[in-house]
Nucleic acid binder design. Structure first.
Length: 586
RNA sequence: GCGCCCGUAGCUCAACUGGAUAGAGCUCCUGACUUCGAAUCAGGCGGUUACAGGUUCAAAUCCUGUCGGGCGCACCA
């Protein structure tokens, strides 16, 4: 907020000196405290483009620069930095505005966008496992961030409820279903059937053919197969609902792959009619239109020094459809239904080529669509040995087990630290802390790095972790409990006078909340928010160690109570964006 | 073979349009609880940002090449 104000004043000054300058690259950023609170380095590149003396340009801009009311007189430093130091009254004024409930250091987007977010996408008849947590948690955090900033968000769970695996599952269900096992553990039994039949089909072509036949029957609407398929869906949905309820993740819609099944033939027909797709080796595929240089063309690949076609298949030679078809039909449906400004796909990085092809194909298919398509990808999940987790035949860690263990471990710590709390409360705290630890560990690293799965790391409760942030929050709550006991209350009109360096550092950090939220939304990287909140908790804790609150005399006490209250609100709001709760005590 | 991504402290990771002396956590060492919650704080150890060139006032960041690793590349999703 204040950053935007300084930026506006800077833009006015730069425009006065260089009327034709591109102001979009004239930015203000925060900087090291020894230089000030904010700085701009834009004048150096501007001077370079125009072959001006940078220091002279800075001097000229300074002459036109009016930051009265916001900052102390700015300084030129280094090659041609301009350093800004906030005026104490401006800082106090912002805190007072927040105290009156006018803002919480961020502002809503000036032009709200409609954003569809496609994430999680588990498969029917399979257990949700660690492979689903990144997409689910990342997608949910992004949805929350966009919503907080005032955008219209549609979260859509594109469930894997259609496809070749059902041929095998149907055979298994008909021939080898263990009904008591299904009743006791539906997902486990369906998984057993899938694994068994998958292995058998690999070894026996006749069985594979039988599976295909069952699939074709299903796709043609065979009543028995449809009924079984619906039962598998229903049983899976129970599992999804349970997991999402535990995670606190909600979807606006859950239109699985099967929803688009009736549209696939028309999609392919239209692609063929428009000349995007054509027959090739018995299949139908989308080829390059040669509009891009081969290097950037997702429909080309190089072999032995020559460029070859790398088409996207939309119909198999047996007439079946595949995921490119479904994704294009889905894209068309989403455009018709929500007219979004942006569609975000949260999947792992192995699908990069696929989405490049889908996006490129869609651009040609619907040339007038103004939608921004974004593949927000993340790294693979690795075992502790650094090798990828097996998804088909090897053992995977089930998400439900992971959450159970997180809560158990958290309960041990809570019981250790706070044995006097009733068990029910300890369990509720352990639920919030354990779940928060899992989510935070997942959101903290840059999403594009590979994810090394480790119980100890996921559930560590020390250092840069959710429990550290939650602990800071409970200390703040504790102050207010004590304040209430002592009959001290927060006066919204009390003056704010910041003096101690710890008070100033904390107060100034609060101002950056909005900028960080905007960065998270712009780059779809919640780890920026994790780091911001970790720093916030650090600033608060240092303030807490150095500055007594309740024992201080006025006016310090009011100022410090206010700082506690605002820090607590930003901390809780930030954690809420990450989908992480904050207990009163822990 | 081609493409995408990655290589930063012993380990796991940060580093905001290229910005000023590359920062945290874990580990190890030293201190701080009769004072608002020590799941904490203060301090210390630890770096040729894989390597070699280039671009410029300025490079972990951009360009070229080399080495090393992960992933993808026609009917699975």
């Amino acid at each position: 907020m204040i950053r935007h104000l300084i930026e506006q004043r800077l833009h006015a000054a730069v425009a006065a000196v260089l009327p034709d300058a591109d102001l979009t690259s004239v930015l203000v950023r925060s900087c090291e405290p020894k230089f000030g609170d904010y700085q701009t380095n834009a004048l150096m590149s501007l001077a370079k483009q125009r072959k001006l003396n940078p220091r002279q340009l800075a001097t000229d801009v300074m002459a036109k620069l009016d930051v009265t009311g916001l900052c102390e007189p700015p300084e030129i430093a280094g090659a041609a930095f301009i350093n800004f130091r906030l005026k104490a009254e401006a800082l106090a004024g912002l805190l007072q505005g927040a105290a009156r409930g006018e803002h919480l250091f961020f502002r809503k987007a000036a032009t709200p966008r409609t954003i569809v977010i496609d994430f999680s996408s588990p498969n029917v008849a399979k257990p949700m496992h660690v492979g689903h947590i990144r997409s689910t948690i990342l997608g949910d955090a992004l949805a929350r961030a966009f919503r907080l900033l005032g955008h219209r968000v549609v979260t859509d769970n594109h469930i894997g409820d259609w496809g070749t695996q059902f041929g095998m599952l149907l055979i298994g269900w008909k021939r080898e279903l263990d009904a008591p096992a299904l009743a006791a553990d539906p997902i486990g039994e369906m998984e057993r059937l899938y694994k068994k039949l998958s292995a058998e089909c690999k070894a026996d072509p006749a069985k594979l053919e039988a599976a295909r036949a069952e699939l074709v029957k299903l796709q043609r609407g065979d009543a028995e197969n449809l009924a079984i398929w619906r039962e598998m869906q229903r049983l899976s949905q129970v599992q999804f609902d349970t997991i999402y309820a535990r995670l606190g993740v909600k979807f606006d819609v859950a239109l699985g792959e099967s929803f688009y099944n009736p549209r696939l033939q028309a999609t392919v027909d239209d692609l063929v009619a428009k000349g995007l797709a054509r027959e090739s080796e018995g299949a139908k595929a989308i080829f390059s239109d040669d509009s891009l240089p081969p290097k950037d063309d997702p429909f080309k690949t190089q072999r032995d020094g020559e460029w070859h076609a790398n088409p996207a298949l939309v119909q198999k030679n047996d007439g079946g459809f595949n995921y490119a078809t479904t994704d294009l039909a889905t894209l068309a449906y989403r455009m018709e239904t929500w007219s979004p400004d942006e569609i975000i796909y949260v999947t792992d990085g192995r699908q990069q080529l696929h989405f490049r092809q889908i996006f490129a194909a869609f651009r040609r298919w619907r040339a007038d669509a103004k939608v921004r398509l974004e593949h927000v990808w993340f790294g693979s999940i690795l075992g502790e040995d650094g090798k990828p987790f097996k998804t088909r035949s090897g053992d995977t860690v089930k998400l439900a087990d992971l959450l159970d263990e997180a809560e158990e471990r958290a309960l041990k710590v809570v019981t250790d630290k706070n044995p006097n709390l009733p068990e029910g409360e300890r369990r509720e705290i352990a639920r919030i802390v354990g779940l928060g630890a899992v989510k935070y560990a997942d959101l903290l690293p840059n999403r594009q790095t590979d994810y090394v799965f480790s119980w100890d790391k996921l559930l560590a409760l020390q250092g840069n972790t959710a429990p550290y942030l939650q602990y800071a929050s409970t200390r703040i709550q504790s102050i207010f409990r004590k304040a209430t006991e002592a009959g001290v209350s927060l006066d919204p009109s009390a003056a704010i006078r910041l003096g101690a360096p710890e008070e100033l550092a904390l107060a100034k950090h609060l101002l950056n909340f909005g900028f960080v939220l905007e960065m998270v939304a712009e780059e779809c990287r919640p780890n920026y928010l994790c780091n911001y909140l970790y720093e916030l908790a650090g600033h608060f804790t240092r303030f807490y160690e150095a500055c007594p609150v309740l024992k201080a005399a006025e006016p310090e006490r009011s100022t410090r109570l206010r700082l506690c209250e605002l820090a607590g609100r930003v901390l809780r709001q930030g954690l809420d964006v990450l989908g992480i709760g904050t207990p009163e005590q822990m």
